[in-house]
Design a protein around this nucleic acid. Structure first.
Lengths: 119, 119
DNA sequence: CCGAATCCTTTCCGATACTG
DNA sequence: CAGTATCGGAAAGGATTCGG
């Protein structure tokens, strides 16, 4: 990779909080309702789901749609901007899955070395 | 994008803290010394640079090298694992740069709408 | 120059209770 | 079902000081 191919140093990700990526990748397979998200995303609290959805709606990453059927329900789906973002993070998500073992091994080796050195 | 192309829902990025991506992308152009990083990365405190470097060293993303020249100095450089990670985040970093204006515009529109609705 | 240690403030976030 | 409001503990992070 040459320097010209890379974004300039110091640039920051626009979406970088704890739950946004998980929510976005969950919505990659199609719109979901609040409760589906809550049950489908392990460990998220109701509060953080609400906060995250609001923030992503504000950023134009997803849209909140109220369906006037009986009973009424609300769904969340990615916008075209959200889809393009998901596509851009997919390589990083795949890297994380593929290299989880490598990173864990590096941590174990590092910690073991620290113990040998006497903290 | 089909469902099979995507990492399974709920997977989490291995590196997702505030400063790691900035440090890694800064090191993409080659090894740097502590003070170069400190001066080159806008807004990072000395403490957070230290903490971030340790964490990334532990993860096997970068290596700390002590050069026994006069005067001695210490440099930080990406490992092959770190380079592969940087390559995987590059699309997301480029997306962030390319869509900053879009997202900011969406935020302004959202906030304006909220005001119209009377909070 | 590099970084550890301490202190202190800010922000995050889960639990809980309540509304249409 | 789909939220909002509030509270308190936990964690992040900045400022400062000290040491090799």
């Amino acid at each position: 990779m040459s320097a010209a191919d890379r974004p300039r140093a110091g640039c920051r990700p626009l979406i970088d909080d704890k739950w946004s990526l998980v929510v976005i990748s969950f919505l990659g397979s199609g719109p979901r309702r609040f409760t589906e998200l809550r049950r489908g995303i392990d460990g998220i609290s109701q509060r953080m789901l609400t906060v995250t959805l609001r923030s992503l709606e504000r950023d134009g990453i997803l849209v909140r749609t109220i369906h006037n059927v009986m009973p009424p329900n609300i769904s969340y789906g990615l916008t075209p901007l959200g889809v393009s973002f998901l596509e851009s993070v997919t390589p990083m998500l795949e890297w994380s899955q593929a290299n989880l073992k490598h990173v864990e091994a590096a941590r174990v080796a590092y910690d073991a070395q620290k113990v040998l050195e006497g903290r």
